[in-house]
Nucleic acid binder design. Structure first.
Length: 423
RNA sequence: AGAGAGUUGGGUGAGUGGCUGAAACCAACAGUUUGCUAAACUGUCGUACGGGUUAUACUGUACCGGGGGUUCGAAUCCCCCACUCUCUGCCA
């Protein structure tokens, strides 16, 4: 959530930023925020003054009673009762203004960094770099949804039987490939200085608000109604929320956490021709990296995380490109996002396998994640996260890109994890 | 799931209607003392939102798990909810 102070101090930049996102009626929304904030301040001043008066009278009543001056005390009580009615009214008004302000702020997305390109959709994303060569496969190449049947390593029909569409069953070498990738990713992150955490995969409502999934993306999460808990769509939610309502010292920063979790997404209304096989699932596995940094360091951290993810793709010998998302394609809460896409050679298309974002103070403000700096003043930290990596599309591209007429080569770095080198 | 007990500032913990934003102790920070360390002593030591100031200072309000109520006045009384602990039950 944007800080009102930022909207006030950097009005033009914020407005420009919202326009870059194609946010409708940006000017009106910002004006309304400022108007509500002014109203909030003035109503608070009024209320506080009356409250101070009332507090004073109440104190006087106490001493009057002690001195046995019951007549004066009764008079004071009447006066206080009258004040109370006024205070109640101001109080309600103030609470209402604050509520309006908050729900308005919830609707405002983060302001993109100046380097974020303008644009409406994925077409306008900016290619930062590409790496590796696209393999030329022989004519009998198969898309991964055929390969998994041919080698009997991932079974969608079984998943349908026990759960439903989008919940595949990994079998034999398919299951071992999953486990190998998870371990490989975790080990790599550990070597990079991340601390491993294993968070719950159901979270409460506060956590959903903390990272910004709520109130916006309610319909995207599975919900356990009786217990009022959400299945996580990404480990970002529980890991970042570890630091909700936390006061850090500047010396604690940066905090670097990594965690593996399954992720659950309802993907309501997003099924179509391009989402066959592993391209889109309701349940998938992902290793997520999260950083909490000093505001001065967050963009350096973003670059570092991007480079780290690229390193993983290089080790897996996958051709990839890095995109800087445009304002229109970026997530609601992000200030800058890099997407890493891997080329899947049988589908002949790029698949997004990682998204690395800097949220600046947008999440920290909701989380109340602050630190005390050198000047002993509290300020909001910056939060970042990235997939490192999401498994299904990595699996898809490994299978497709490395297929040969008599089997599928596994990347060298995985051999020791897998215990085999071909499928 | 049933019964009972509890939730106070960074920690322990006192506080059953006004003198309590909250004792005491510990931790932390600053200073004094000391050759250094330690100890001792002194002081500081919550957060948020307002007012005020160039910035401090200063000042108002709210906050003792969350929400509501009683009262002139609530950490303290009442109601609802959440969570924690203990016992019983169930169980990987």
């Amino acid at each position: 959530m944007l800080l009102v102070q930022t909207i006030r101090d950097q009005y033009d930049q914020v407005l420009l930023g919202l326009k870059k996102r194609n946010f409708p009626q940006a000017t009106e929304a910002l004006q309304q925020v400022l108007a509500l904030d002014d109203l909030r301040k003035s109503s608070q001043t009024q209320r506080d003054q009356l409250q101070a008066e009332s507090n004073l009278i109440s104190k006087q009543i106490g001493s009057l009673m002690k001195e046995g001056k019951s007549l004066e005390a009764t008079a004071a009580k009447d006066q206080s009762s009258q004040l109370k009615a006024q205070i109640k009214e101001l109080e309600d008004q103030h609470a209402q203004v604050e509520e309006e302000l908050k729900s308005l702020l919830y609707l405002l997305p983060n302001v993109p960094h100046v380097a974020v390109p303008a644009g409406k959709s994925a077409e306008d994303n900016e290619e930062v770099l590409s790496h590796g060569t696209i393999p030329s496969l022989w004519e009998g190449k198969l898309p991964h949804w055929e390969l998994i049947k041919k080698y009997d390593i991932i079974d969608f029909d079984l998943g349908v039987k026990i759960t439903g569409a989008g919940f595949p069953v990994y079998k034999g070498k398919g299951a071992r490939l999953q486990r190998a990738l998870i371990n490989f990713f975790l080990d790599q992150a550990l070597a990079e200085g991340y601390m491993e955490v294993q968070p719950p995969i159901l979270v409460n409502e506060e956590s959903g608000y903390g990272t910004g999934q709520l109130p916006d993306k309610e319909g995207q999460m599975y919900f356990a109604k009786d217990d009022h808990l959400y299945l996580i769509p990404t480990a970002e939610v529980p890991i970042t929320n570890l630091y909700r309502d936390v006061f850090l010292n500047a010396t604690d920063l940066p905090i670097k956490n990594v965690g593996y979790t399954p992720c659950f997404r309802r993907e309501a209304g997003s099924w179509g021709a391009h989402v066959r096989g592993l391209n889109r699932l309701h349940q998938f596995d992902k290793v997520e990296i999260v950083q909490i940094t000093h505001p001065d360091q967050s963009y350096a951290a973003l670059e570092q995380m991007s480079a780290y993810v690229q390193g993983l793709l290089q080790k897996l010998e996958l051709p990839y490109r890095v995109l800087r998302l445009c304002g229109g394609d970026m997530g609601f809460t992000s200030a800058m996002t890099y997407d890493m896409e891997v080329y899947s050679a049988a589908q002949e298309r790029w698949l997004e396998v990682s998204s690395v974002s800097n949220f600046e103070t947008y999440q920290a403000n909701r989380l109340k994640l602050r630190f005390k700096g050198e000047d002993k003043k509290s300020q909001f930290a910056h939060t970042l996260n990235g997939s490192a990596l999401a498994l299904p599309r990595i699996v898809a591209s490994i299978l497709e890109n490395n297929q040969e007429p008599d089997g599928i080569r596994m990347p060298k770095v995985l051999h020791s994890y897998l215990g085999f080198d071909r499928i």
